[in-house]
Amino acid sequence: MDTHSLQAFLAVAETGSFSKAAENLFLTQSAVSKRVAQLEDQINSRLFDRIGRTVSMTEAGNALLPRARDILLRLDDAKRVIGNLTAGEIRGSLSLAASHHISLHRLPPLLKQFSEECPKVELDLQFAESEVAYEGVLKGDLELALITLSPEPDPSIHSEIVWDDLLHYVVAEDHPLAEFNEIDLKQLTDFNAILPGSNTFTRSLVELLFQQHQLELNVTMSTNYLDTIRMMVSIGLGWSLLPESLVDKGLKVLNVVDSEPVHRNLGIIFHRDRTLSNAATHLVEMLRSER
């Protein structure tokens, strides 16, 4: 059982397609099929059912999937442990993902400092939604991620708060709610809300708050890009909760008297079973000094 066959198996399992797996691995489709077939011969079990263009995992495939991820994760871990023995030298590659908001408003000075202090590190930086980056770390595809932290992280995920993000209720200056010196949450439900998507950690925080007051949100538009939400609020399309860094002179901050302050935690995550490279360890130490 070799790593190339396991990587091909994982790619097909995660994409549900031999052709997409081939694209992701920069291989031909026949090469991916051959590697999966070799693995099936080695374990004497069919891993996928191929019916027309539909690819689905068999019972054996579902049983192998978490173990294949674990094998590859431990192999990567062994490489990092050995690589870290080189007198603590900081070099090699670092796979990192950051949410769009953190990338724009928190990361630039840190990246500049990191690149100056660690010039031999090849940074593989991805910009992704927090939930996507979270899954990448959980699966072992990413070494680190800087995201909005999950309220209920998987036991395998180590998370640390780096920044406390205070969220403000905001509307455009000519919005009907802007006329009030004080409002309550019930009044907000009478107007359109513009919030991140329902599958996001930030949206979960807001929904929980309103559920605790037995109120139902009136969400008419959603996008996971907070800068886009700010734009839509500024032209009067609805109200939202936005970080302090996005509240500019075109917005009115509402005084919602029956709402406790709304905070979301921004921070770093990595897999508990993964030995961090020297490069990742250095970045984590830099982030800890930000607190």
Rank of each mutant, 00 (worst) to 15 (best):
V233K: 02
T228Q: 03
S130R: 02
V170S: 04
R91N: 05
M231W: 08
D164R: 12
L75E: 11
E244V: 10
K20I: 09
Q126I: 06
A21V: 10
N265L: 01
V55A: 01
V262G: 08
Q7R: 15
Y169Q: 06
F114K: 02
G197R: 04
L72S: 10
K252M: 13
A97E: 06
L251A: 02
F9K: 06
D76N: 15
P109S: 05
E59R: 11
R50C: 05
L287Y: 01
K120P: 03
L138F: 06
L208G: 02
L94N: 05
L47K: 10
P155L: 14
S103K: 06
S33Q: 14
K34L: 14
L72D: 08
L242E: 00
R53L: 10
T148H: 04
S204P: 04
F26Y: 15
T200H: 09
K120M: 06
L72W: 08
E216Y: 09
T189C: 10
F127D: 02
V219K: 06
H158C: 05
N44K: 15
K112I: 14
Q126W: 07
D141W: 02
E117M: 15
T200S: 14
S222Q: 12
A78T: 11
L107I: 09
V247Q: 14
Q113M: 05
E59Q: 13
T275M: 07
A280S: 08
S156C: 13
S19E: 00
F201Q: 01
L283H: 05
E117P: 11
T54C: 03
F18H: 00
V162N: 04
N218F: 03
E290T: 11
R272T: 13
G140D: 13
I82H: 01
I90Q: 06
E14N: 08
K252E: 12
H271I: 00
V206E: 03
D164L: 13
A87H: 12
S103Y: 07
N278Q: 14
I194S: 03
H175I: 04
L208E: 07
G140K: 12
H263S: 00
R272C: 13
Y169S: 09
L149Q: 03
Q211G: 01
S33E: 12
T202W: 05
S56V: 10
H101I: 11
E59N: 09
T58P: 09
E143A: 04
V253Q: 04
A128F: 07
Q212G: 15
L25D: 05
P108K: 10
V253C: 04
A37M: 15
R288G: 08
L85H: 01
P196M: 13
S30L: 13
R67I: 14
F180G: 03
I102K: 10
P151K: 08
G197E: 04
A21Q: 10
V32I: 07
L75M: 11
G140Q: 14
A8E: 05
F191P: 01
